[in-house]
Amino acid sequence: MTAFSLEPAQLAWCAELRALAAERLRPLAGKGEPGRVNRALLAELGALGLLPRLFTSGALELCLMRESLAHACTEAETALALQGLGAHPVHAHGTDAQRAHWLPRVAAGTAVAAFALTEPAAGSDAAALSLTATPATPGRPARPGGADGWRLSGEKCWISHAPEADFYTVFARTTPGAGARGVTAFLVPADRPGLTGTALDMLSPHPIGALAFDAVPVTADDVLGEVGRGFRVAMDTLNLFRPSVGAFAVGMAQAALDATLGHTARRDAFGGKLKDLQSVAHQVAEMALRTESARLMVHAAATAYDEGAPDVPRRSAMAKLLATETAQYVVDRAVQLHGARALQRGHLLEHLYREVRAPRIYEGASEVQRSIIAKELYKNLEDR
């Protein structure tokens, strides 16, 4: 039922979040420096109790948060989402000591988390990671609390919050030639010797950078989950966050649709209002149809995750794919119907036009989502 209609309390909470985003978060976002972590914004997200919800909410609640924040303040939405993406592996797979040290600080907005999966030659193909974890003492296994462990060597790139994060969830190859089965997840504090970062000049309001690992020491105490099971940590995180990327996109699409409704209802053209032109009215109807369809698929995927359904990977991929492609369409149509004013610096649609492009790439590009969907469909056929 929840996948198709929200309860009154949920609708009221979403309205409250939109108001908070507009009144308290948007002013802080406006004071931030482009390409830098906005720590004041993170602290306010913590003070409002939104960051702690990252570790107590289900997938549907996460989607409602992200859509509501995105409608009024995309910077606040992204700040919250990146904290969740970087810290979820610690919450779900970390040790008691790891959780106790980092999660309260993430929830307060005083520690910045980052998810370091992508490499120069391994973006969408996560199983092809080449960042190597070489045993510090050949032939001797790592021991909890011991000095033995690994040395990380290689690169990560296009990492959100790098190089300003306080810690990174890092995925490295511990077993050469083993594909997805040879990857281990590590929690790596930013001050580890041998770890350096460089900011990249990207079309993004938050920092995105590259990381270089020069024999960075890690031990068994830094492992997230199990050795050799890091790919599972990555996929568990992405299956949760992919529908909520879709929710972010839906929030942007709804903001663009709302702006278009207001503009076309007020704008005089050809002896009437823009909305009276059938060609305009039909475009607005199509924008609304696609936005609501994407929202329903996002809610359905999130509900499936919360219920532990077996088809979560397929549903998550479908939700992200449909919602991000829909948002691109809706924002583009909104710009067209607004005309030149929409491209003026500072206009809502100029902002959304820049923001809406990246979600079709990160956490698995649209082409990757189609591959996941097809793979899951054929796997189900074989299992019959």
Rank of each mutant, 00 (worst) to 15 (best):
A87S: 14
A100R: 14
L80P: 00
A116C: 10
L54C: 10
L54D: 01
H93N: 02
H93D: 11
A113Q: 05
G58A: 03
A111D: 00
Q83S: 12
A72I: 03
E77P: 00
L103Y: 01
L117T: 13
C73S: 10
A113R: 08
E67V: 01
L85Y: 07
A92K: 08
L60E: 11
A116K: 06
D96M: 02
R99H: 06
R66Q: 13
E61L: 12
A114R: 01
H88V: 06
H91R: 09
E75D: 15
E77R: 09
Q83V: 09
H93P: 00
D96L: 11
G94W: 06
E61Y: 05
E75A: 15
T110Y: 06
L85W: 08
T118W: 07
E77N: 02
P89D: 12
A72L: 01
R66M: 13
H93V: 00
T78H: 10
H71N: 01
E77S: 09
H88A: 13
E61C: 05
V106F: 02
P89T: 12
L117V: 15
A100H: 09
A114F: 05
A79D: 04
G58W: 05
T95N: 07
L82I: 07
M65G: 00
H71V: 07
H91Y: 13
T74W: 13
R105L: 15
T74V: 15
A72E: 14
L54V: 04
D96A: 15
D96R: 12
L62D: 09
T74A: 14
A72Q: 15
G86Y: 08
A111F: 03
A79T: 06
M65K: 00
P89A: 14
S68V: 10
A70D: 02
H71D: 00
A79E: 11
W102M: 06
A81W: 11
G109N: 04
H91V: 03
L62P: 00
T56M: 00
A111L: 07
A114L: 04
G84S: 07
A114S: 15
A107D: 04
E75R: 12
